[in-house]
C-alpha cells in the first residue's frame, strides 16, 4: 500500500507560463513552473491541547505520522482529501488555517475504526476525528454537522426514556435538519417493507410511534446522566475558552 503523501503546496500557488523570459533567459516550457511563496504566521499554539481536551482527542500527542490511519481509511478511499494523518499533523503543528480548509469534510468519518485497528501508537485516530469535528463546531467554524444533529437527537431520546424507538428518531432527525421524509427511495423502502409484514407487527410498530418503548424507573438514571453531560460540556467549554484567553494575553504582551 502506498503512503498517502500530502503536499503542502496549494494548487493555486503553482504558476506556469507558456512563454517566459527572465533576465534574458528563456524559461518557457516545463522550466516555467513556479511556486508562489506563502508564509504561515497564524499558528495556534494551543490547538493540540484544545483537541486533546475533547473526548476522543486525548492521545493525539502519541502520533508518529506513519500514515497507517490514512492508508486504512474507508472515507479516504472515496475522497483522497479525507486525510487523518495530515490533519493530525496540522493540529500538532498548530496550523489552524490549513486545517480549516478541510473543515467541511472532517465530520464524515464513519467510525469504522480501521485506523484505530491499524495505528501502532494507540492514537485512536477515530476519536481524534470526532474531537476535531466537535472542536470545529464549538469554535463556530462550521455549523452543526448532520451527524452531530443525529447524535444529539439519539442521545436526547436515550437520556429521556432509556431506549431508542427508531422511527421516532428518524422523524426527529429529518425535522431538525430540515429534510423531507418523503424522498423517493424512502417511499420505495417503506413499500417493500409493507409487502411482507404481518398485521400484528405493523400494529405494534404503529403503536410504538405513539407510546415510545422505555426503561422502567429510569428517572434517576436520566437525571444523573444529564447532570454528568452538562458538567462535561462546561469543562470542555472552559478548556477551549481558557486557551483563547491565553492567546489574547500573549498577543497583548507581544503588542
Amino acid at each position: 500500500m502506498p503512503i498517502h503523501e500530502k503536499s503542502l503546496i496549494r494548487p493555486e500557488n503553482l504558476q506556469t507560463h507558456d512563454e517566459l523570459i527572465l533576465d534574458g533567459v528563456d524559461v518557457s516550457g516545463h522550466w516555467s513552473t513556479f511556486i508562489e511563496t506563502r508564509v504561515v504566521k497564524d499558528y495556534n499554539e494551543s490547538l493540540e491541547e484544545e483537541i486533546a481536551a475533547l473526548p476522543g482527542g486525548e492521545q493525539i500527542h502519541r502520533c508518529w505520522q506513519c500514515g497507517s490511519c490514512t492508508n486504512s481509511c474507508t472515507v479516504n478511499a472515496l475522497n483522497p482529501d479525507f486525510n487523518p494523518r495530515y490533519w493530525i499533523y496540522l493540529i500538532r503543528m498548530g496550523m489552524e488555517s490549513e486545517l480549516l480548509r478541510d473543515k467541511d469534510i472532517i465530520w464524515q468519518c464513519v467510525s469504522c475504526n480501521k485506523c484505530t485497528y491499524a495505528c501502532p501508537r494507540d492514537v485512536f485516530p477515530e476519536g481524534v476525528m470526532k474531537a476535531t469535528s466537535h472542536w470545529l463546531e464549538l469554535k463556530g467554524h462550521t455549523p452543526k454537522s448532520p451527524s452531530m444533529h443525529f447524535d444529539e437527537v439519539f442521545t436526547e431520546q436515550i437520556v429521556k426514556t432509556g431506549k431508542i424507538e427508531e422511527s421516532r428518531t428518524i422523524r426527529r432527525f429529518f425535522a431538525r435538519t430540515g429534510q423531507g421524509l418523503m424522498q423517493p427511495w424512502m417511499i420505495e423502502m417503506v413499500k417493500r417493507m409493507l409487502r411482507g409484514l404481518p398485521v400484528g407487527l405493523l400494529a405494534r410498530m404503529g403503536l410504538a410511534t405513539f407510546v415510545a418503548p422505555k426503561t422502567n424507573d429510569w428517572s434517576k438514571a436520566s437525571a444523573a446522566i444529564q447532570e454528568y453531560i452538562d458538567e462535561q460540556h462546561e469543562k470542555q467549554a472552559q478548556a477551549l475558552t481558557l486557551a483563547e484567553l491565553v492567546e489574547t494575553a500573549k498577543q497583548d504582551v507581544a503588542a
Binding site: 451527524s147 443525529f150 447524535d151 444529539e152 431506549k163
Partner: peptide, 14 residues
C-alpha cells in the same frame, strides 16, 4: 436500556 449505539459516545464516551 440502550447501550448507547454509535451515537452517545460522540456526546460523551463515559
Amino acid at each position: 436500556n440502550c447501550c448507547g449505539a454509535m451515537e452517545v459516545k460522540n456526546i460523551d464516551p463515559k
